[in-house]
Amino acid sequence: MQKSTNVTKLGLAQMLAGGVIMDVVDAEQAKIAEAAGACAVMALERVPAQIRKEGGVARASDPAMIRAIQKAVKIPVMAKCRIGHFTEARILEALEVDFIDESEVLTPADDEFHIDKRGFRAPFVCGCKDLGEALRRIGEGASLLRTKGEAGTGDIVEAVRHLRKLRTQIRRLGTLGKEELAHEAKLLDAPLELVTSVAQTGRLPVPNFAAGGIATPDDAALCMALGAEAVFVGSGIFLSEDAPKRARAIVSAVTSWEDAQKLAEVSTGLGQPMRSLQVSSLPEAARFASRGN
């Protein structure tokens, strides 16, 4: 019996496809998320919009809160650690969280290095803005990626930018000759073997989900149409007027993303979305997506 192999780690990422992973801050929200059809929950102390508003250093959550959420639901429970903070990650692993998110939403602990994720029993998800960043994270052992978007804003523009960029860069690799790949790997600052694999298969070796700025069912469906295999929704649910209803609608939208009639139906009468921020009005220092490398 071999536990925590690359296959089982990647396997859980594959099982989450077509689903919605929802940020929750306590067991009660976790239950609401599960009842609404979340395929997993992300346990964290404050949702990104609150972190943005309150400022200060954002860290991994209290183990008591994570345990309470694990007890409350049957679906997978994920939790965030700071970029490069491998001790926080070890604690999350000891708590047996199902996925660790090395996340730019928390304050980075290391401004140079990400965690070497290969030595962990728990699988990791990491953010990316482009192909180079995606492949560096996979090289470090991430089993799942999510395009970063701009968390806590309710503005989908960055998620769209990152999804499109990734897709364009993957397509471009397929057009290059073998002799061009080493140079391309250098430009992307990514491992050559991963660059070669993407050039050959036309896809990333792990799934990519969307995150950052999803506030409505149609935002989620848009991400699916741009090639995301599932979505993470942070502040968009529990900071909206009617969280259970909106959560349920986003779940339906991710499944029925191709069906505009269905999208119209589930988008009806959801109440106010989260209070949103235009990303273009944010100063560079306030952008989470530029954290990590």
């Binding site: 192999t5 296959v7 089982t8 099982m15 049957k74 047996e96 199902d98």
Partner: peptide, 26 residues
């Protein structure tokens, strides 16, 4: 019973009695 083998850290690979490759995920 769902998740009968435990959480994700207990997901595993092995072979069946008849030699089928087995991948168990939660």
């Amino acid at each position: 019973v769902r998740n009968g083998w435990g959480r994700q850290v207990d997901s595993f690979e092995d072979a069946s009695e008849q030699g089928r490759p087995l991948i168990f995920i939660r």
